[in-house]
Design a protein around this nucleic acid. Structure first.
Lengths: 180, 180
DNA sequence: GTCTATATCAAGATAGAC
DNA sequence: GTCTATCTTGATATAGAC
């Protein structure tokens, strides 16, 4: 079987749900829509996922893993002289490319009791931690800044006169002093 | 009329809605619940507020103004030697004291076309800007960090071993170098 | 102006037939 | 596994009484 064809019904459901979310936003992510997307009725979904929240958790786990892969791939091939700023831009670019997905990820508590979610969380934190050479508090503070920036940008919360690039530059330069 | 008794029906509605949100969370914030809270039926609300979104915007405007007042009051009476860290803790404390309210404020785009909201946004940014002595990008970068920290803490996104206080100390100390 | 009564539509979820 | 039928709850809109 080819990788683009989901091997299980559950996987097919999760992928359809994510597609709806990314292309049409959170209001399109209804059980009815997801079911219609794969040609069945809504109640049938409950044979494969516990409820809507579990479906969202599956999307979140997939997304965190993808983001982690994007970051470690970026880091492995980075050639410039400011990998920290590079990672910040990589984080931002991923979020802006998947705005609805990013908002879902941080819209609620993580279901850490679901193994796939707990693993994905660990996975997602690894690339930045490797960059701070194991300084975990520093990596978490940098993550907080990046998340705040992306979150405010996605919600259009910066006043219209804001030079967002400048905020990233100044913020990341200042935060980089944590590592010296 | 005493200040604790809302002078208009609309004000009464906004206060009831906020009370429901703060005490019982976002799912309790329904038009039916709000109406029941003040002893009327849901459809009657639409004589006073355009729709639910406008009601939320009214709550957000009130909340931003309150937060602004809390910050400027704090700043006016601050005696210590690190006002920036003090402001950060004031920001955090306010958010942790009003978690559902804080999440509502940042859950969606601001309705800047509503005058009260646009004014409240300006109002909320002022205390921190006075602290950075007019360095607007610095104040916005600091705000982003603070928002990221609060947002991750409220959503329980820091791993269980996290010393959140330490993240604030290290992050704010680093960001303070922007002002020197 | 303000309210009650009512209707429409969509959502998440469950029971039980096939 | 999938279906139909159904329950419950929510936002919203209109008609019409007072």
């Amino acid at each position: 079987m080819t990788p683009t064809i989901p091997s299980t019904r559950r996987q097919q459901i999760v992928e359809a749900a994510r597609r709806l979310l990314e292309e049409q936003g959170p209001t399109a992510l209804s059980m009815r829509n997801v079911a219609a997307e794969i040609g069945i009725r809504a109640p049938s979904l409950y044979e494969h996922v516990t409820d809507k929240r579990a479906l969202e958790s599956a999307i979140i786990a997939d997304a965190l893993n993808e983001q982690a892969t994007a970051q470690s791939t970026f880091l492995a091939s980075y050639q410039g002289d400011d990998p920290l700023m590079g990672m910040a831009m990589n984080y931002r670019d991923w979020a802006l490319a998947h705005p609805h997905l990013y908002r879902l990820i941080y819209s609620r508590d993580l279901d850490r009791d679901e193994l796939a979610v707990a693993e994905a969380e660990q996975h997602a934190a690894r690339p930045l931690r490797s960059l701070t050479r194991g300084d975990v508090p520093a990596s978490r503070a940098i993550w907080s800044f990046a998340h705040g920036m992306v979150s405010l940008e996605l919600a259009d919360r910066f006043p219209p006169d804001t030079d967002v690039d400048e905020l990233w530059r100044r913020g990341m330069r200042a935060l980089g002093t944590m590592l010296a």
